[in-house]
């Protein structure tokens, strides 16, 4: 099953709380180099915990009770809430530069230049070069861009995204998703995308894993799953997506 290009492989991962409550059971998944997979499921399905297990960021009361995680490359993670993931008392360029200097072993000055390059790549305003800003001076979308910059500063082979756009408005969400796709093409990292939004996952990912109550109930190529769902839960998820009529507007919006 393991092919040459697999960059991350999880085998029969099980997680439980310290008082023996099983949270994640026998989760196996594999990600190829530069590929995108999506993990979909509702709250409490264990999707975020699986993600956290990969970068060993489990909460102290939850432990791995079985299975292996094999990771060929460095991982970085983007969180759902860009407000609490940034240090509120540290200007953003400094936060990015700190990670650059730590992960890439560069001097303070070059890491600052690198950080600014990264932020520019992510479409943050140019004037950060002159006056650095604190996180609360940025909008939600900008903060999420800063977070992505920090994640990319680690030069990850795998980018883990935990509901990165849930806290954002739809127009900003669209920009961030497009940005992630563009960066992935340029930097060729693998993307593990956790979301409860089936529409986002199916638009972004080539392969989907559907999780429910700590287990993977269905997996496969996105189009196969959507066209021909096997598990009742997957069908229910697909049916609960609210459809919109197609726009017929002639206004040049984009």
């Amino acid at each position: 099953m393991m092919s040459m290009s697999t960059i991350l492989e999880i085998n029969q991962l099980s997680l439980a709380t310290t008082n023996k409550k099983q949270l994640v059971t026998d989760v196996s998944l594999a990600v190829g180099k530069g590929k995108t997979i999506g993990i979909v499921g509702e709250s409490g399905s264990g999707k975020s915990l699986t993600l956290r297990a990969i970068i060993q960021l489990l909460p102290p009361t939850i432990i791995k009770v079985g299975g292996t995680i094999r990771c060929e490359s460095s991982c970085a993670m983007i969180f759902q809430d860009p407000v609490s993931a940034l240090d509120p008392l540290c200007p953003v360029v400094r936060q990015v530069a700190e990670v650059v200097s730590y992960r890439q072993h560069l001097s303070r000055k070059t890491s600052r230049t690198k950080a600014l390059e990264l932020l520019a790549l992510l479409g943050l305003p140019e004037d950060l070069k002159r006056n650095d800003r604190y996180p609360h001076q940025l909008s939600g979308g900008q903060r999420q861009r800063v977070l992505i910059a920090i994640a990319l500063a680690c030069r990850p082979g795998i980018l883990l995204c935990d509901e990165p756009t849930t806290a954002l408005d739809v127009t900003v969400q669209k920009q961030i998703l497009e940005l992630l796709a563009k960066l992935q093409r340029e930097l060729n990292f693998a993307l593990v995308f956790v979301t409860h939004n089936l529409a986002i996952a199916s638009a972004l990912c080539t392969k989907l894993y559907v999780m429910k109550e700590g287990r993977i109930v269905e997996q496969g190529r996105t189009q196969d799953i959507l066209a021909n769902p096997q598990h009742a839960y997957t069908k229910m998820l697909i049916d609960s997506v609210l459809h919109l009529p197609d726009l017929k507007g002639v206004i040049a919006g984009e």
């Binding site: 089936l198 996105t222 959507l226 919109l244 507007g249």
Partner: peptide
């Protein structure tokens, strides 16, 4: 009906086009 097919304001159009949609596959 009118809003979702022919929104009047530019901004409404942006909002609507930003909504992630399920790709349609034959079921």
């Amino acid at each position: 009906e009118q809003f979702f097919l022919h929104p009047k304001a530019d901004y409404s159009y942006q909002l609507l086009s930003a909504v992630p949609r399920m790709p349609i596959f034959n079921r």
